[in-house]
Design a protein around this nucleic acid. Structure first.
Lengths: 115, 115
DNA sequence: TGATTATATAAGAGTATGATTATATAATGA
DNA sequence: TCATTATATAATCATACTCTTATATAATCA
């Protein structure tokens, strides 16, 4: 039970970022591990630039980390972020997004990159 | 430990509302009990219409309730709201706003309405 | 090297947001 | 009833947001 109180301003900033269906879904997908951009595009059925722009906001704020592996860029949740406790709790309160990834996997579209 | 999972959309809507410094401060003030509009105006040092508009958003979404008592309108947190668990957790993670109300009280500006 | 795949960035349009100013409504009290 | 106090609403404006389209960058592979 961590009592890491963040500033009100930092918290508001994080909540604003999470307060968008697309970004909240992205974070929900990342809850179970990393994903690469094309997976978000596939799951969310949105244009690649739109996804990239959302990811940039999440990355700029530090909520997610990115790591390039070959031609892919993988994103993951930054659990070192100041407001991570709030983020994690939020992600525990929304419906699990795992099935969406499972559907991807069954369609053979899941990226398994072991570079 | 309630596991009331709300829809992702409802959660995003709530987070968006909380993701604003003014509204998050308002909710933080309400955490310790009801407040009336003029108290928010005083504490936040913002114009009355601006505060009213933020309160309307919070009320329209159901995050807060309003109750008129005489010439004052008191607002309080609606703990029956679908996404209340997330809201409460968020409010537990931000710095306490009690001192601001205490300052009001000491200045004789706190409304004690017993209608 | 050139073609392909994955991702990022830039520019533009349409919409939403949040503040201000002015005004309306509601309750109180002389 | 009229003036005052508290609050809500409407109109306006500047800014921020999110999407689309077009293009740039980066890595891979033939």
């Amino acid at each position: 039970m961590e009592k890491t109180v963040s500033t009100l301003e930092d918290t508001a900033k994080t909540l604003k970022l999470l307060g968008d269906n697309t970004r909240l879904t992205i974070m929900g997908l990342l809850k179970d591990g990393e994903c690469c951009v094309c997976e978000f595009v596939e799951v969310l059925q949105m244009s690649q630039p739109s996804i990239s722009q959302h990811l940039r906001k999440l990355r700029d704020s530090g909520l997610v980390k990115e790591q390039r592996r070959g031609q892919w860029v993988f994103y993951s949740i930054n659990d070192q972020h100041e407001t991570y406790p709030v983020t994690r709790h939020v992600l525990e309160q929304i419906p699990d997004q795992k099935e969406k990834l499972k559907a991807l996997e069954e369609a053979g579209l899941r990226i398994r990159c072991d570079l």
